[in-house]
């Protein structure tokens, strides 16, 4: 596809830890087209954050990343440092769950915006200030001129998240990676921030990968969705496809844990349903997983699940890695 910005192929991340090797992410394929919002959902620990950080090599030294992350024709995983730095922030930016820890406590918000502009642009000081004011305005922070001088602890939670968005968007990235941007916020503010992100995405023509464990958020905002389980993408398709006719037993179980969040209710009015855990625990990642990782918790499991199922496309671009895919849809 010509308007594909990001094409991830067979991404895997292992961590070397004192207690052995942790296979946090394996075999992840993901594509993002210009301007679209892709949701990445899954239980806590399923590898969403690690996947997101791997895309621009933000993981620490104990991580081994393999596979390909093709960004507009270049493999980010193979780029030299200086090329990578030019992409980070300028083309692919990222925001985090907890702005209190993601913002530097000793630098003013203005400074944290400014250094982004210095790194990626040629504006003079006055120009950068004008741009910084414009950015605060854009994310809905009032009295921008005073707020630029303020430090993170002088903002409320929602304002801090807005400030972080302003910083991330300073250099006009084409893709924003958002790691649970609303999870740490009050419910009323969650909605405002989500709306803000959606408006910015549309207004700026900026694509977004939105990580969340809130299916309501995905239903409300995303074009397509990837469901992760134990470090793998197990189902992928448009939001209508995945939430309307789930083809993976895990997705199906997820949706069933939420009353009123069935095939017909995935649109605007969908309940802001939280993900209620399914019986049992996700598997440990520090030993090889044979077969389908979800099988031990799955009501549809059968003998063939001892071999890991491949991702299968049903012909409409709706893919799932589940032997029970057809049975689920038939019900």
């Amino acid at each position: 596809m010509s308007d594909t910005l990001l094409q991830v192929r067979d991404l895997a991340v292992t961590f070397e830890t004192r207690r052995g090797r942790v296979q946090a992410v394996s075999g992840v394929d993901l594509s993002v087209r210009a301007g679209e919002i892709v949701g990445l959902v899954g239980e806590s620990g399923s590898g969403k954050s690690v996947t997101l950080r791997a895309l621009t090599r933000l993981l620490h030294a104990n991580a081994r990343i393999s596979g390909q992350v093709i960004w507009r024709g270049e493999d980010v995983l193979a780029l030299p440092e200086n090329r990578l730095r030019a992409i980070r922030g300028r083309e692919i930016a990222m925001i985090f769950q907890e702005p209190m820890t993601a913002l530097n406590p000793v630098l003013s918000i203005g400074r944290q915006i400014d250094e982004n502009l210095v790194a990626h642009g040629s504006l003079d000081q006055a120009g950068r200030r004008r741009r910084a004011l414009e950015l605060l305005d854009m994310v809905g922070i009032a009295s921008a001129a005073q707020r630029l001088e303020n430090f993170p602890h002088e903002f409320s939670g929602g304002q801090r998240q807005r400030a972080m968005i302003a910083i991330a968007l300073a250099a006009e990235p084409r893709l924003l990676l958002a790691d649970e941007p609303t999870t740490a916020l009050d419910v009323t503010i969650q909605d405002q921030i989500l709306k803000l992100l959606m408006n910015l995405s549309t207004g700026l023509g900026m694509a977004m990968v939105l990580v969340t464990h809130d299916l309501g958020v995905v239903a409300q905002s995303c074009d397509r969705v990837c469901v992760m389980y134990a470090g793998r993408v197990v189902e992928r398709g448009s939001v209508e496809q995945v939430f309307g006719r789930p083809r993976h037993a895990y997705t199906d179980a997820l949706l069933r844990t939420m009353p009123g969040f069935g095939p017909s209710s995935h649109t605007e009015g969908a309940a802001r349903a939280r993900l209620v855990p399914i019986e049992g625990q996700p598997p440990r990642l520090d030993r090889p997983i044979l077969g389908c990782a979800f099988a031990p918790r799955c009501t549809h499991a059968s003998a063939q699940c001892e071999v890991r199922p491949e991702m299968v496309d049903d012909g409409s671009g709706h893919e799932a890695a589940c032997f029970a895919a057809d049975a689920l849809v038939a019900v």
Binding site: L58, A93, E115, A119
Partner: peptide, 30 residues
């Protein structure tokens, strides 16, 4: 160095020198 704001600074494409001197040193000196 393990603080998330260092990761955020890296995600902005800042140079290693700026990250160490502006973001890390100042906090570590406190």
């Amino acid at each position: 160095l393990t603080a998330e704001f260092v990761d955020f600074a890296r995600s902005k494409g800042l140079s290693q020198r700026i990250i160490l001197l502006r973001h890390v040193l100042r906090n570590a000196l406190i």
